[in-house]
């Protein structure tokens, strides 16, 4: 369970997160949306401490993420993070990308790491690309490898930051399918995405942000049919074109 309590963040003098209070329950799938620059990336990046916060508290299962006693590497290894730009390691083969963290962080033997990696690649439909190098894959394939790489650490929580925004439209589906499958397996997921279809089908809740603040939270159907806040209304109208 992830809990945000009165979270404030500033970049210098810029107020990027404004008093965020939110609870994401175990097994819940929450979609964050909002206009560009509203603080969505900033919010999910505070969860694994890619961004520090200046006020408030973020806890995962009761443990303060920013606590002095928390080992940041151990914390992060328990939170999967998927980036908009995939950020695969181009000098390592696909399977090596997936094996690296278990071997380095959990000291898993190479053989075990490879077996796990192959299982995960199979799960995202890319076992046949195991020995290929990332730049040779399509964007959608790269993003699926990135998801497998994050899953290799067996994290109870997955964070997605616009995982399909950098993809050509015809490649979006294959990534969303992997995410849907994860959701159906009970993964706790916090996803920044504007994919309405995904939100409606999978999400338990939609959070709408603007100007660093959470302005609305609602069930997906309600949010997209009857947005309440004026800015949410404008946003929903905009993404429908």
């Amino acid at each position: 369970m992830i809990v945000f309590e009165n979270v404030d963040k500033w970049y210098g003098t810029y107020h990027a997160l404004n008093n965020v209070n939110e609870t994401i329950g175990k097994g819940e799938v929450v979609v964050i949306c909002g206009p560009s620059g509203s603080g969505k990336s900033t919010l999910i990046r505070t969860v694994n401490r890619l961004e520090p916060i200046q006020k408030g508290r973020i806890t995962i299962d009761g443990r303060d993420v920013n606590g002095a006693d928390v080992n940041v590497n151990a914390l992060r290894s328990g939170i999967g993070f998927v980036f908009q730009q995939f950020n695969l390691f181009p000098h390592l083969s696909v399977v090596r990308n997936v094996m690296l963290a278990p071997m380095r962080v959990h000291k898993v033997p190479e053989k075990t790491a490879r077996e796990t990696a192959m299982d995960l690649l199979d799960k995202v439909g890319l076992a046949h690309k195991a020995d290929e190098f990332p730049p040779r894959l399509s964007g959608g394939q790269q993003q699926r490898v990135a998801i497998a790489r994050a899953l290799a650490m067996k994290p109870p929580v997955m964070l997605f930051d616009e995982p399909t925004s950098a993809l050509d439209p015809e490649l979006v589906g294959e990534v969303l399918n992997v995410m849907k499958q994860l959701a159906s397996e009970g993964m706790t997921m916090l996803c920044v995405t504007h994919e309405m279809g995904f939100a409606r089908e999978v999400a338990d809740r939609v959070i709408f942000m603007d100007g660093g603040a959470v302005l609305e939270r609602a069930a997906p159907e309600d949010f997209f049919q009857r947005p309440q806040h004026p800015r949410a209304r404008k946003f929903v109208a905009d993404i429908r074109h």
């Binding site: 694994n48 890619l50 590497n73 151990a74 914390l75 992060r76 290894s77 328990g78 939170i79 993070f81 980036f83 730009q85 950020n87 695969l88 390691f89 690296l100 963290a101 380095r104 962080v105 990135a146 790489r149 994050a150 650490m153």
Partner: peptide, 23 residues
């Protein structure tokens, strides 16, 4: 190098030194 390389590595739980050395 793209900034995302460090971020991806650190997000997986690799330490600063491991990130430098391996990535």
């Amino acid at each position: 190098l793209p900034k995302g390389q460090v971020e991806a590595s650190r997000s997986l739980g690799l330490s600063y030194v491991q990130t430098m050395k391996d990535i």
